[in-house]
Design a protein around this nucleic acid. Structure first.
Lengths: 185, 185
DNA sequence: GACCACATGTATCATGTGATACATGCCAGC
DNA sequence: GCTGGCATGTATCACATGATACATGTGGTC
């Protein structure tokens, strides 16, 4: 069912999530996930190709998550809450790796284009679409960016200071504020 | 006036901001900023010490910024706007380096403790203090985290998709929402 | 002028690293 | 049972890298 490559990739992602990419050599990576450096080269090609595969995997997972999340739900507030739940779960799983990968998107590396899309553009589009049902397109677009930023910023802070309860509370406040904004607009 | 070390450090920060830390060797770094690998070792010690110095410099700059920003201004909304202006300027200057360093804070590296403080804790404290003048301490604390997250998340998105106008517009919306929240609370 | 601390240049070392060559195992299909 | 393709193990190469040893310059003090 699962190819050796997929199997390896999953373990690579786990190890990167825990130990970071920057000072993980192919040798130590291979040893840690129970394979050999030879196999990493065989299944991925080069060291950079390992990174690209990781980015593709994370981007793919995120894309799937977005699709699943926004297709089934049409109420923006409920979607926002579900999005937060799903975002924070991913954050706890991937940890700092999420931001480590985001840096590649910020540097506009070609292989990270899809990641940039699922991290920002795609979610922005979906939130805008949802909000547009309750307000003007321009307003919806601004609120979408705000909502996305709140999720990302809270995850940022959460990963640094670990205060999950505070993040959840802030989301609840923001949800109320959005609700009021939509009712007023 | 400026010691050779400070002078070097400033150039190191610039180069890291533009090219990233991850694949910059001491040799290429030294060549790029017009010094020798020998000098980097002489003035900083080891490669990791260079990183620590960079983190300290960035954290110090941010600490100074926080102090300057929040001491002079007592109105939370005005402080929020000024904070955004200053945050976004820093983001455009440091670029992805800001998040590259944040990853170290997320991994709770000891040398990044001060960075974690200025990135989250200190700002959280200041915003909470400001908001507490207009609402309950608990509410102020939640709004502070929200405000901080909005700034960070918008910078995150801005660095990825480059839409400065959208970020500014979102901030304006958020400012209104906060204003309403404070007036209601 | 002797001395000294700070700063810088040159050369080199030991090692970790990505990559590759070559051989081996395993298993399906004929 | 032979063959061919996928997968894996072993050994090695060429090189970049961090680090250090040693020599040189430079400016200030007595």
């Amino acid at each position: 069912m699962t190819s050796p490559r997929e199997d390896l990739l999953a373990r690579v992602v786990l190890h990167y999530a825990e130990h970071g990419i920057r000072d993980t050599s192919l040798r130590s990576l291979a040893a840690a996930i129970g394979t050999s450096q030879r196999m990493l080269h065989y299944h991925f090609g080069s060291r950079e190709d390992v990174l690209v595969a990781v980015i593709d995997a994370v981007a793919g997972g995120q894309a799937e998550r977005i699709g699943r999340l926004f297709d089934s739900e049409s109420d923006p507030v409920v979607a926002g809450e579900r999005n937060w739940a799903s975002t924070v779960d991913g954050a706890m799983a991937f940890g700092a790796l999420w931001f480590e990968l985001a840096v590649h998107a910020m540097r506009h590396e070609p292989y990270a284009a899809r990641l940039a899309d699922v991290m920002v553009t795609a979610q922005l589009r979906e939130f805008t679409r949802l909000y547009a049902k309750r307000t003007t397109p321009e307003h919806a677009s601004r609120l979408a960016r705000l909502t996305l930023a709140v999720g990302q910023g809270l995850v940022f802070d959460l990963l640094i200071d670990g205060d999950r309860a505070a993040a959840d509370a802030a989301v609840r406040d923001f949800t109320c504020m959005i609700q009021r904004e939509l009712d007023a607009g």
